[in-house]
């Protein structure tokens, strides 16, 4: 049985919106929606799409939910960041939570790269201090008032700081994903 052109177009847009899901899941959602619309059509309803909202938003509710759940299972910063980025489309709070956590992840990676390269570039990489400076990394060499802190402990300290910051920001990302899922449960919405 065929649906009116407008309903077919809606189904097409929903399918496009579900592009990031697996083929089986996508087919399942669209088939269920088609079945619903066919039933309503058989009942003689004039506006088949009443109560569905935009196709983009309808599809996004599945995509966000799936991405958040899958990220929790995977637990990697990449999966968590990607899921939160998708969820940030409809939540400013998620966006504001995600940005500092992404920054922390990049800083942590910077620390780890510094620690790994320290044995090869001992004079260029390290912990630098000065009257208005305290940072881990490298300098351009044009700032004579800062100097590198010497000592064997700098290398492991930077590595530990990197690992701790990475782990902590990862845990906070997990917390943010759980919070977003909890919001769905609380409001009954995905």
């Amino acid at each position: 049985m065929m649906l009116p052109k407008q309903a077919e177009e809606y189904l097409k847009q929903v399918r496009q919106g579900l592009a990031s899901l697996g083929q089986d899941e996508r087919d399942d959602i669209v088939a269920e929606l088609r079945s619903h619309l066919l039933d309503r059509q058989a009942q003689g309803r004039a506006n088949l799409l009443e109560g569905f909202g935009s196709a983009e938003r309808f599809a996004a509710s599945f995509v966000i939910q799936s991405a958040l759940r899958s990220a929790l299972v995977q637990g990697t910063s990449w999966a968590l960041g990607r899921a939160l980025f998708i969820a940030a489309r409809d939540s400013v709070l998620v966006l504001f939570g995600l940005l500092p956590l992404l920054l922390a992840q990049f800083v942590a990676l910077g620390f780890l790269v510094c620690a790994a390269l320290k044995p090869f570039f001992p004079d260029q990489l390290g912990l630098w201090v000065g009257p208005h400076a305290f940072f881990i990394g490298t300098t351009s060499g044009n700032t004579p008032d800062i100097h590198q802190v010497d000592g064997w402990w700098v290398f492991p300290a930077v590595a530990v700081a990197g690992v701790l910051l990475f782990w902590l920001s990862n845990r906070l990302m997990v917390g943010l994903v759980r919070w977003r899922l909890h919001q769905s449960e609380k409001t009954g919405q995905p």
Partner: peptide, 15 residues
Amino acid sequence: ISEGSIYPLLARLRA
């Protein structure tokens, strides 16, 4: 209940 809200909820309950 709006028609569009039931399916994402059912997907969550299934997950």
